[in-house]
Simulated assay, not measured.
Amino acid sequence: MTQLAGAEALTALDPVFAQLAVGAGHNLWGLANLTMREKAFVCLTADLCHPHLDLPLAMHVQMALANGVEPEAVRELYRHLAPYVGYPILVSAFQRLTELGLPEAKDTTPVEPEPLTGPLAHLVRDLEGVDPGLAAFTEDQLAQRWARPHLTTRERAIACLTVDVLYQTLGESMRLHAALARANGATDETLRDLIRGLAEFGLPRAWNAANSLFTK
Protein backbone atom coordinates (compact mmCIF):
# COMPACT_ATOMS: atom_id res chain seq x y z
CA MET A 1 0.00 0.00 0.00
CA THR A 2 1.31 3.47 -0.91
CA GLN A 3 2.77 5.37 2.03
CA LEU A 4 1.03 8.72 2.04
CA ALA A 5 3.27 11.74 2.41
CA GLY A 6 2.69 13.69 5.62
CA ALA A 7 1.00 10.87 7.53
CA GLU A 8 3.25 11.48 10.53
CA ALA A 9 2.33 15.16 10.58
CA LEU A 10 -1.36 14.27 10.58
CA THR A 11 -0.85 11.84 13.46
CA ALA A 12 0.79 14.61 15.46
CA LEU A 13 -2.31 16.77 14.92
CA ASP A 14 -4.85 14.10 15.86
CA PRO A 15 -4.22 10.33 15.70
CA VAL A 16 -7.85 9.35 15.06
CA PHE A 17 -8.28 11.94 12.31
CA ALA A 18 -4.98 10.75 10.82
CA GLN A 19 -6.37 7.21 10.47
CA LEU A 20 -9.49 8.55 8.75
CA ALA A 21 -7.49 10.83 6.45
CA VAL A 22 -5.00 8.14 5.46
CA GLY A 23 -7.87 5.79 4.66
CA ALA A 24 -9.49 8.43 2.46
CA GLY A 25 -6.17 9.06 0.75
CA HIS A 26 -5.70 5.37 -0.02
CA ASN A 27 -9.14 5.40 -1.68
CA LEU A 28 -7.93 7.95 -4.24
CA TRP A 29 -4.43 6.56 -4.75
CA GLY A 30 -5.78 3.03 -5.18
CA LEU A 31 -8.17 3.83 -8.05
CA ALA A 32 -7.35 1.77 -11.13
CA ASN A 33 -8.59 3.97 -13.96
CA LEU A 34 -6.56 7.12 -13.25
CA THR A 35 -2.81 7.33 -13.78
CA MET A 36 -0.55 8.24 -10.87
CA ARG A 37 0.08 11.61 -12.54
CA GLU A 38 -3.66 12.24 -12.82
CA LYS A 39 -4.20 11.37 -9.16
CA ALA A 40 -1.47 13.82 -8.20
CA PHE A 41 -3.01 16.51 -10.42
CA VAL A 42 -6.42 15.90 -8.84
CA CYS A 43 -4.99 16.57 -5.38
CA LEU A 44 -2.99 19.61 -6.49
CA THR A 45 -6.07 21.03 -8.21
CA ALA A 46 -8.25 20.43 -5.15
CA ASP A 47 -5.77 22.44 -3.09
CA LEU A 48 -6.53 25.51 -5.22
CA CYS A 49 -10.30 25.08 -5.09
CA HIS A 50 -10.74 25.23 -1.33
CA PRO A 51 -7.89 26.58 -1.05
CA HIS A 52 -5.47 24.41 0.94
CA LEU A 53 -2.01 25.95 0.53
CA ASP A 54 -0.43 24.88 3.81
CA LEU A 55 0.13 21.26 4.91
CA PRO A 56 -2.20 19.67 2.30
CA LEU A 57 -0.37 21.32 -0.59
CA ALA A 58 3.01 20.38 0.88
CA MET A 59 1.86 16.75 1.19
CA HIS A 60 0.48 16.66 -2.34
CA VAL A 61 3.57 18.23 -3.89
CA GLN A 62 5.69 15.62 -2.10
CA MET A 63 3.41 12.83 -3.33
CA ALA A 64 3.49 14.16 -6.90
CA LEU A 65 7.27 14.35 -7.04
CA ALA A 66 7.63 10.94 -5.38
CA ASN A 67 5.46 9.46 -8.14
CA GLY A 68 7.52 10.86 -10.97
CA VAL A 69 5.66 14.07 -11.76
CA GLU A 70 8.16 16.60 -13.10
CA PRO A 71 8.33 19.99 -11.33
CA GLU A 72 7.60 21.68 -14.66
CA ALA A 73 4.39 19.63 -14.95
CA VAL A 74 3.28 20.89 -11.53
CA ARG A 75 3.94 24.43 -12.72
CA GLU A 76 2.09 23.82 -15.99
CA LEU A 77 -0.92 22.43 -14.13
CA TYR A 78 -1.16 25.64 -12.15
CA ARG A 79 -0.63 27.81 -15.24
CA HIS A 80 -3.46 25.93 -16.92
CA LEU A 81 -5.83 26.36 -13.99
CA ALA A 82 -5.44 30.13 -13.52
CA PRO A 83 -8.60 31.21 -15.39
CA TYR A 84 -10.61 28.31 -13.96
CA VAL A 85 -9.95 28.99 -10.27
CA GLY A 86 -8.88 32.65 -10.54
CA TYR A 87 -5.52 34.29 -11.14
CA PRO A 88 -5.14 35.75 -7.59
CA ILE A 89 -5.09 32.33 -5.88
CA LEU A 90 -2.37 31.21 -8.29
CA VAL A 91 -0.13 34.05 -7.14
CA SER A 92 -0.31 32.63 -3.60
CA ALA A 93 0.07 29.08 -4.91
CA PHE A 94 3.23 29.84 -6.90
CA GLN A 95 4.65 31.66 -3.91
CA ARG A 96 3.95 28.57 -1.80
CA LEU A 97 5.58 26.27 -4.38
CA THR A 98 8.70 28.42 -4.11
CA GLU A 99 8.63 28.13 -0.32
CA LEU A 100 8.34 24.35 -0.67
CA GLY A 101 11.51 24.28 -2.76
CA LEU A 102 10.05 23.49 -6.18
CA PRO A 103 12.77 24.24 -8.77
CA GLU A 104 12.53 27.42 -10.78
CA ALA A 105 10.62 27.30 -14.05
CA LYS A 106 12.53 25.86 -16.98
CA ASP A 107 9.96 26.92 -19.56
CA THR A 108 10.34 30.65 -20.13
CA THR A 109 9.30 30.76 -23.78
CA PRO A 110 6.63 33.29 -24.86
CA VAL A 111 3.09 31.96 -24.83
CA GLU A 112 1.88 31.26 -28.37
CA PRO A 113 -1.94 30.95 -28.64
CA GLU A 114 -3.20 28.06 -30.77
CA PRO A 115 -6.52 28.32 -32.69
CA LEU A 116 -9.29 26.45 -30.92
CA THR A 117 -10.98 23.44 -32.47
CA GLY A 118 -13.68 20.96 -31.50
CA PRO A 119 -15.66 21.46 -28.27
CA LEU A 120 -13.53 24.45 -27.20
CA ALA A 121 -14.26 26.33 -30.42
CA HIS A 122 -17.95 25.39 -30.13
CA LEU A 123 -18.07 26.86 -26.63
CA VAL A 124 -16.68 30.17 -27.86
CA ARG A 125 -19.21 30.31 -30.71
CA ASP A 126 -22.05 29.73 -28.25
CA LEU A 127 -20.74 32.48 -25.97
CA GLU A 128 -20.62 34.96 -28.83
CA GLY A 129 -24.41 34.92 -28.91
CA VAL A 130 -24.55 35.65 -25.19
CA ASP A 131 -21.75 38.18 -24.70
CA PRO A 132 -19.16 38.86 -27.42
CA GLY A 133 -16.72 40.39 -24.96
CA LEU A 134 -16.81 37.37 -22.67
CA ALA A 135 -16.44 35.12 -25.70
CA ALA A 136 -13.33 37.02 -26.83
CA PHE A 137 -11.73 36.81 -23.38
CA THR A 138 -12.59 33.11 -23.10
CA GLU A 139 -11.14 32.37 -26.53
CA ASP A 140 -7.92 34.18 -25.62
CA GLN A 141 -7.56 32.31 -22.34
CA LEU A 142 -8.29 28.88 -23.79
CA ALA A 143 -6.11 29.41 -26.87
CA GLN A 144 -3.12 30.12 -24.59
CA ARG A 145 -3.47 26.84 -22.70
CA TRP A 146 -4.86 23.69 -24.20
CA ALA A 147 -2.08 23.03 -26.73
CA ARG A 148 0.87 23.79 -24.47
CA PRO A 149 3.52 21.16 -23.57
CA HIS A 150 4.13 19.38 -20.23
CA LEU A 151 0.52 18.10 -19.81
CA THR A 152 -1.70 16.04 -22.08
CA THR A 153 -5.15 17.20 -23.12
CA ARG A 154 -6.64 14.39 -21.05
CA GLU A 155 -4.72 15.56 -17.96
CA ARG A 156 -5.89 19.13 -18.52
CA ALA A 157 -9.50 17.96 -18.92
CA ILE A 158 -9.34 15.89 -15.73
CA ALA A 159 -7.97 18.87 -13.82
CA CYS A 160 -10.82 21.01 -15.15
CA LEU A 161 -13.35 18.33 -14.21
CA THR A 162 -11.90 18.43 -10.70
CA VAL A 163 -12.67 22.15 -10.62
CA ASP A 164 -16.18 21.49 -11.92
CA VAL A 165 -16.90 18.95 -9.17
CA LEU A 166 -15.47 21.07 -6.37
CA TYR A 167 -17.02 24.31 -7.64
CA GLN A 168 -20.24 22.47 -8.58
CA THR A 169 -20.24 23.83 -12.13
CA LEU A 170 -22.13 20.75 -13.23
CA GLY A 171 -23.76 21.99 -16.42
CA GLU A 172 -22.11 23.13 -19.64
CA SER A 173 -18.62 23.41 -18.11
CA MET A 174 -18.60 19.83 -16.84
CA ARG A 175 -20.07 18.48 -20.10
CA LEU A 176 -17.35 20.28 -22.09
CA HIS A 177 -14.52 18.90 -19.99
CA ALA A 178 -16.01 15.39 -19.91
CA ALA A 179 -16.22 15.48 -23.72
CA LEU A 180 -12.58 16.58 -23.96
CA ALA A 181 -11.49 13.84 -21.56
CA ARG A 182 -13.41 11.18 -23.48
CA ALA A 183 -12.05 12.40 -26.81
CA ASN A 184 -8.55 11.86 -25.42
CA GLY A 185 -8.87 8.35 -24.03
CA ALA A 186 -10.93 8.65 -20.86
CA THR A 187 -13.79 6.19 -20.39
CA ASP A 188 -16.86 6.26 -18.18
CA GLU A 189 -14.85 4.26 -15.64
CA THR A 190 -12.12 6.92 -15.72
CA LEU A 191 -14.70 9.58 -14.90
CA ARG A 192 -16.35 7.40 -12.26
CA ASP A 193 -12.97 6.88 -10.58
CA LEU A 194 -12.36 10.63 -10.71
CA ILE A 195 -15.59 11.35 -8.86
CA ARG A 196 -14.92 8.52 -6.38
CA GLY A 197 -11.52 10.03 -5.67
CA LEU A 198 -12.97 13.52 -5.27
CA ALA A 199 -15.37 12.24 -2.61
CA GLU A 200 -12.41 12.76 -0.24
CA PHE A 201 -12.85 16.50 -0.77
CA GLY A 202 -16.58 16.58 -0.08
CA LEU A 203 -19.12 13.76 -0.32
CA PRO A 204 -22.12 15.99 -1.23
CA ARG A 205 -20.18 17.49 -4.14
CA ALA A 206 -19.31 14.01 -5.40
CA TRP A 207 -22.93 12.86 -5.12
CA ASN A 208 -24.15 15.85 -7.15
CA ALA A 209 -21.46 15.36 -9.79
CA ALA A 210 -22.20 11.65 -10.17
CA ASN A 211 -25.91 12.34 -10.56
CA SER A 212 -25.24 15.09 -13.13
CA LEU A 213 -22.75 13.08 -15.19
CA PHE A 214 -24.24 9.61 -15.12
CA THR A 215 -28.00 9.96 -14.55
CA LYS A 216 -29.87 9.87 -17.85
Rank of each mutant, 00 (worst) to 15 (best):
L176H: 08
D54Q: 13
Q144P: 14
D164M: 08
D131I: 08
L116S: 10
R145I: 09
G25L: 10
M1L: 14
G202V: 00
R175K: 14
G86T: 14
W146H: 07
G101H: 06
C49G: 03
A210I: 15
A210R: 10
E72S: 05
A7Y: 09
R205A: 14
V61F: 03
V130A: 03
G68W: 01
R156W: 04
F41V: 01
T109I: 06
T45N: 01
E155D: 07
H80M: 07
G6M: 11
P83C: 11
P83W: 14
A73L: 00
T45C: 02
P115E: 01
F214I: 13
L134R: 04
F137R: 11
A121T: 07
C49N: 04
F137L: 14
Q168Y: 01
R148I: 02
M1Q: 12
P113T: 09
L13K: 12
N33T: 13
L13Q: 13
P51K: 06
S173H: 15
V74W: 03
V85Q: 00
A147H: 07
A18D: 02
E76Y: 03
T169A: 08
S92P: 11
D164V: 03
A7R: 06
T153N: 11
C160Y: 13
L57I: 13
V69Q: 06
V61M: 12
T138E: 00
P113V: 05
A66C: 06
I158N: 03
L77P: 02
Q141A: 08
M1I: 15
T117A: 12
D131N: 13
T117V: 10
A147K: 05
A12Y: 11
D131S: 05
L123D: 05
L123A: 12
